[in-house]
Amino acid sequence: MKPTARGALAAVMTGVVAVGAAAVAPAVAADTVPVPVPLNGVEQSLGVKAPKVAGELPLPLPGRLEGPRYVEGRTIPDRAVPQVPLSGGLPGADVRTPLPHMVGDGFEHLGLSAPAADLWTLTPGVSLDGALGAPDPDHLGLPGLKQHQAAVLAPLVRAVPTANLEMGSGA
């Protein structure tokens, strides 16, 4: 094989590998999706410094479902409608706006940074039990009667959001 053909083949293979790696990497590593807010047109048309605004939207991920549990003495399994865990995050924001300096020609800035925070939730569930109990040997094996039981399992939400407010010199 000629050296030029080898070089062309190597270039094609490198391009194929680079495209394949670029297609796989974002799908695996993406926890949040950045959301930029373009305000460059405002800066150019009005001739003033515009604020810089950006955000992050988290991707929710379903967790492992905990199915019904069979309990002795109950006719219907515990947690008949199971709770579904979801994990994701709260959206984040980064806002930075220039403030005119009162004493000199420079600018100061006011910034608010609220990064995306982890969020873990558990959907509501239902636990039911029927009116028939377990077979009773004292009544020839017939089940005894008991009161109906129904319970709604409360949803859970767990998150620790944070924010940072700053004011300083620089644009």
Rank of each mutant, 00 (worst) to 15 (best):
P58Q: 01
A21N: 10
Q147L: 11
D118Q: 11
G7N: 15
A171R: 15
K49P: 02
R69Q: 15
D118P: 00
A116S: 14
G89W: 00
P135H: 11
Q147Y: 09
L140T: 04
A8Q: 05
K52F: 07
P161H: 01
G104N: 12
T162L: 05
L156N: 07
L9S: 07
M13N: 12
P137M: 09
M167Q: 15
S169C: 03
Q44N: 12
H109N: 10
P3D: 07
S127C: 05
A29E: 07
P124V: 03
M13D: 09
H148L: 15
A29G: 08
V28P: 01
G144H: 13
S127T: 13
L156W: 09
V35M: 13
A22M: 11
E166T: 10
P62I: 07
L165A: 08
D129E: 11
V160H: 08
P135C: 13
L142K: 15
K49S: 09
P68Q: 12
P100K: 07
V48L: 09
L39Y: 05
R74H: 09
G7A: 15
L128Q: 01
K146D: 05
P155W: 06
P77W: 03
T4Q: 10
F107D: 02
V84D: 02
K2S: 06
M13S: 13
P115Y: 00
G104F: 03
T123Q: 11
A150E: 10
G15K: 02
P143L: 08
V152M: 14
P60S: 04
L122F: 04
V84K: 07
L61T: 10
K146G: 08
S169L: 04
L65F: 08
T121M: 10
L153W: 01
D138W: 11
F107S: 04
A131T: 15
R158S: 12
P161S: 01
P26D: 06
I76K: 04
K49D: 10
D105V: 11
G55A: 14
R158K: 15
L165F: 10
A80H: 11
G88L: 01
V16E: 13
L119Y: 00
L9R: 11
V48W: 06
L132Q: 00
V48D: 02
M13P: 02
N40A: 15
G111M: 06
D136G: 03
L86V: 15
G89Y: 00
R79K: 13
K2A: 03
L140Q: 06
L119A: 01
